[in-house]
Amino acid sequence: MSEAVTAMQMAEFDGLCRVADAGLQGMIVLRGDLGSDALRSAVQDLTGAGVPKVRRVLSKGTFSVLWMSPDELMILCPYAQADAHVATLAKALEGQQALVANLSDARAVFALTGAGLREVVAKVAPIDMAPGAFGPGDIRRTRFAQVSAAVWMTDDTSARVVCFRSVAEYMFNLLRTAAHPGAGVGFF
C-alpha cells in the first residue's frame, strides 16, 4: 500500500492559538438507528465509550465517539486500526440496517491549541463559543467561512476541527488568517 499522508503535510502556524495539521487520524463513519440495542452494544463493545447524547462526544482510551446527526456517529481511533475496527463493527451489525465505512482518508483534521482558540473559531463559524455555551465534550457541525466542518473541544485550551480533505488547504489558510497575531479581538 502507498504511504499515507495528510492533506496539509503536518503544516503548523503559531498565532492567537496554534493551528496544526493533527496528522493521520482513523475516522469510522457509522450510520444507523442510534437508539437500537444492536448498534448501541456494538459501539459499546468496540470503544467502551458508548453512544453519546445529542451534540456530545464520549472518549475512552484511544477511542472517541462523536455525535454527527440523529442517525450518524463518527468513531475516532488510531489510523492503522481503522480497517480492523470497521470489520469488527460490520460483523457486529450484520443483518441490521446500518452502514460502517472507513473515511479516514476523506477528511482532514486540525488541532487548535491555546487560550485564543475560542476567538479564532468564533471569527469564522456561527457558533456561540462563550465558555458556558460550548466546552469540552460538546461537538458542533457547522460551516467555517464557506466550507462545512465539525469542531469539538478536547479540553479547555484545545479543540479539533475536521473538514473534507478537498478543502483542507482552504481550512488551514482560513484558520491561519483568523489566528494572525495582530488580529486579536479579546472578546472572550
Binding site: 445529542v54 451534540r55 440523529p70 456561527p126 458542533r140 457547522t142 460551516r143
Partner: peptide, 11 residues
C-alpha cells in the same frame, strides 16, 4: 428540531 441547534440562515 433534529439536532437542537439555533442555526443562523447561513448554515
Amino acid at each position: 428540531p433534529c439536532c437542537g441547534v439555533k442555526a443562523e440562515e447561513s448554515e
